[in-house]
Design a protein around this nucleic acid. Sequence first.
DNA 1: ATTTTTCATTTGTCAGACATTTAAATGTCT
DNA 2: AGACATTTAAATGTCTGACAAATGAAAAAT
Lengths: 239, 239
Amino acid sequence: MKNAPDLSAQIAKSIRDAIVSGDLPVDERLPSEAELSEQFNVSRSTVREALKRLAAQSLIRTQRGATGGAFVNRLTFEDAYGQQITTSALLLSMNTVDFDTACEARFALERACAPLSAARRSADHLATMRAEITRQAQPGLSDESFCASDVAFHRALVDGAGNPVLSYQLAGAVEAIEPLMNMITFTARSRTHIVGLHTAIADALEAQNASDVDALLADLATYTAQLGRSVADAKKTSS
Amino acid sequence: MKNAPDLSAQIAKSIRDAIVSGDLPVDERLPSEAELSEQFNVSRSTVREALKRLAAQSLIRTQRGATGGAFVNRLTFEDAYGQQITTSALLLSMNTVDFDTACEARFALERACAPLSAARRSADHLATMRAEITRQAQPGLSDESFCASDVAFHRALVDGAGNPVLSYQLAGAVEAIEPLMNMITFTARSRTHIVGLHTAIADALEAQNASDVDALLADLATYTAQLGRSVADAKKTSS
DNA sequence: ATTTTTCATTTGTCAGACATTTAAATGTCT
DNA sequence: AGACATTTAAATGTCTGACAAATGAAAAAT
């Protein structure tokens, strides 16, 4: 078994290691493509393929022109957030993950934020949640919009913890798992019931009552799991 | 302000969208580079750069030879796990994240797993944890090895929940934040104290006592946060 | 001193060639 | 007919050389 990765992959790894190890600091300019091709003894195309790999991971950015080149990119929370959502969504769509597993993970993670959010949520977060609840109660709302609003509500809850690392780590749970679950359960769910729980959650957060928030999230988890089961049963009997 | 992305980026996005939307199912073979360059009306090099971008995200794999080509790759939990760790590590190293924030996020997430792990941990997980504890108690162990063993211990705890989605979501917390914290605190920490807590955690998991596990993790969080503060203070006074 | 022009540098794109890998097709021998 | 060796076609991997386009800095003109 030969395991010789492409030259472009090797070069990408070499540069990536230099970035990860801090050898190449943020905003440092990499040698030009011509110089890199000399250093690595490969053609410019091969270097370019390596650089594109790094660009795809937001590790570098490139600029044209005289003083241009490839620069080490500061990975922002926003960049990482987006990547996480894409990856999580793909992971769920490409692998057979049963509803219960996804549901369990999502609520376990969200409940981890609850005490922090109860302690620290700002007026801004509360306002966002109230606004989304109002939207969710509107009768004409499409399923897509309801789902988007649902995500925004839970995102506000998570962000309320005021911990960007936590918000980042939960990106997949809130913005990938949540829509997946919405897609499965939207036929069976009661918007009224969900809005009721959301309202109670917002109230408890406003009162900074962590244990109530936790209990209400547990209720929401139970309800969602029930919905999943009922949809699965309905599918089974019909087939 | 013009915002015209490179052709290779556009083409990568186009193909990526087709994959994410399910238009290109897993293991589907993409058209050959020659065909793609005709379809998109660009040169082969440009197509190749686009494909390398996708390969960097593990969205496709390529195979040489007669029946070769680019195939839609099934994103495995393992792939995603690795990506998450790299991204998390970079995010932390490139942004000013204070110790408390990272510590808080890590333990909030790990404590979310505790009840599930207490309920479901297998004998295998317990054995792994015991083995790592034994290693951690050995006197000659290097700091790097102690850290690696620490990560392995916590990973076993998380995996004990038996929820692959949860394990994936926690990859960054365990394998990126944890080493970061070890790197900061290794001068001040008491291995004996940590081994004691680990032992107690393993005991509680074996007894399936979820609330004890939670309390012990809270202790560990407190101790770690204390270490962080004392190291920060020491640095301040010496400078 | 300010504006304009020129220019060198660097990335982006293209075209064509050859090397390498791989599996299928073909040929050959038993 | 079956087993083995050889050829071949298709595909990716790599290289070379060229030109286009952007861009900042230096040079020139005003």
